[in-house]
């Protein structure tokens, strides 16, 4: 927790676009609706599924089953756990909860002498939500992947323009696009440009408690993850 005298403030990677100022309630029109989910917690999880205890520990701590299939996403009210590589996953949750999880996981890995680790990436990543009837078309304008084919509950790591992104599709309503902080300005401008022919609008995102990602917007800020 911040010490007295210092008042740390956070700025998300898309902070400079002042998205909250132009956000409006989403309407069911033909436009593309978009906004950032700022300040979520992200951790890269590394481990060996062949090691006894690894998957169990992850599920025990996070309540999320370790996804073993390429691109699969485990979802729960407290966050998501995505397959990104055979020995690598990405955990997304509320910042404070993520800090608690990673501390417990690393302690557990050490105790069980597992070749596993978490790497905090909360400062390095951000998520944007992209919805509206044409949201997949917007992706088709920018990337060569067959986005229409992503099954619900899956993510794909691919390229939009000249940036690597992860596209997470949990339902038919929209997609989450995950990208790196330093690429955020570029990716946002690209999405905005591609969406322009359909109409582009920034929407208010509600902290829906039943949603694995929107729910993570709820709690107060700032909250810290250890160095």
């Amino acid at each position: 927790m911040p010490k007295q005298g210092f008042q740390p403030f956070m700025e998300s990677p898309l902070h400079h676009f002042k998205l909250d100022a132009e956000a409006q309630p989403r309407r069911a029109d033909g436009r593309i609706w978009c906004n950032e989910l700022p300040h979520l917690g992200y951790a890269v999880l590394r481990g060996d599924t062949a090691e006894a205890g690894f998957a169990q520990l992850v599920e025990q701590v996070t309540g999320l089953a370790l996804p073993l299939k390429a691109g699969a996403v485990s979802q729960g009210p407290q966050g998501v756990l995505m397959w990104t590589s055979p020995d690598e996953w990405l955990l997304v949750s509320h910042r404070q909860r993520l800090a608690d999880w990673t501390a417990q996981l690393d302690a557990g890995f050490a105790a069980q002498q597992l070749f596993a680790q978490t790497v905090d990436s909360s400062g390095g990543l951000t998520l944007a939500w992209l919805g509206g009837t044409q949201h997949i078309t917007v992706l088709r304008h920018l990337g060569v992947y067959d986005f229409e084919s992503i099954p619900l509950g899956h993510m794909v790591s691919t390229v939009l323009g000249k940036a690597t992104v992860q596209v997470i599709r949990l339902d038919g309503d929209g997609v989450f696009v995950l990208f790196r902080r330093s690429f955020a300005d570029y990716v946002w401008r690209l999405l905005r440009r591609a969406a322009q022919p359909y109409g582009f609008a920034v929407c208010q995102l509600e902290a829906r408690s039943d949603h694995p990602l929107f729910a993570q917007l709820a709690a107060p800020q700032p909250l810290l993850v250890s160095a």
Binding site: A70, G71, V144, Y145, V159
Partner: peptide, 12 residues
């Protein structure tokens, strides 16, 4: 062979 999917060259 890991992502078990055919992808475009620009990803590689």
């Amino acid at each position: 062979p890991y992502c078990q999917e055919a992808r475009e060259e620009e990803e590689f």
